[in-house]
């Protein structure tokens, strides 16, 4: 069942007639829904299955990909590009294991469509060190403080930690704890993670 009605664009834009339907299942972010009208014939989805072209910069390298629009950035990194450092822990934005830097900010690759990362700069754990060959101070601090056990959440923790410092939210252990709460560590290496970030925060000079 769908909702189909005639509406038109705002006066500030060219007045063109078009149809919009919106999901009965409710309001998406930023879109409204109105009353249902009669059901219609099943959709032909074949044209929806054509791959979409995407250009993404990952760790400084350009990638041109032809993707299913449903693919998340996480799965694109892992399955298409072959960078498996970002991990799938929940696939719903509830654990932080998939954290990557997008245009320099920590974001969740599991809730990012790969197609919407078009033209954006993505840094994964594999690309954090830069070219010099030295281990990033945050990585070294994680080793020094034994800030992991099984290691599965670690790439996400480290990228999140780097952002935490760059954002200026690593000023005290309390602040680090709060701003690192988006990365769950089931092994519970939390105290060591906080110690590692405190150390790296000084070394990063940010």
């Amino acid at each position: 069942m769908t909702d189909t009605r005639d509406i038109c664009t705002s006066p500030s834009t060219p007045r063109r007639r078009f149809l919009i339907g919106s999901a009965l299942t409710g309001a998406a972010p930023l879109i409204a829904r109105s009353e249902p009208v009669a059901a219609a014939e099943p959709a032909d989805t074949s044209d929806l299955r054509k791959p979409t072209s995407v250009d993404i910069h990952v760790n400084g390298r350009p990638f041109h990909l032809e993707l299913d629009t449903r693919l998340t950035l996480l799965d694109a990194l892992r399955e298409e590009i072959g960078l498996t450092g970002a991990k799938k822990g929940c696939d719903h934005g509830q654990c932080g294991a998939c954290t990557v830097l997008i245009d320099g900010r920590r974001e969740l690759s599991c809730l990012t469509l790969a197609v919407s990362a078009q033209g954006r700069d993505v840094v994964t754990i594999e690309g954090l060190d830069g070219g010099g060959g030295d281990l990033h101070p945050m990585k070294q601090a994680f080793i020094d403080h034994d800030a992991f056990q099984c290691g599965y959440c670690t790439p996400g923790q480290i990228l999140s930690a780097v952002s935490c410092v760059r954002e200026g939210h690593a000023g005290s252990p309390e602040e680090i704890r709060e701003y690192m709460s988006g990365n769950i560590c089931r092994c519970a290496a939390y105290p060591n993670i906080v110690a590692a970030i405190s150390q790296a925060s000084e070394q990063m000079g940010e």
Binding site: G21, A23, A28, P29, I31, A40, E41, L108, L111, T112
Partner: peptide, 14 residues
């Protein structure tokens, strides 16, 4: 296509 439904994507978290 009467079944077409459109949705806007902003941050995507919902």
């Amino acid at each position: 296509n009467a079944e077409a439904t459109a949705t806007f994507l902003a941050g995507g978290t919902t």
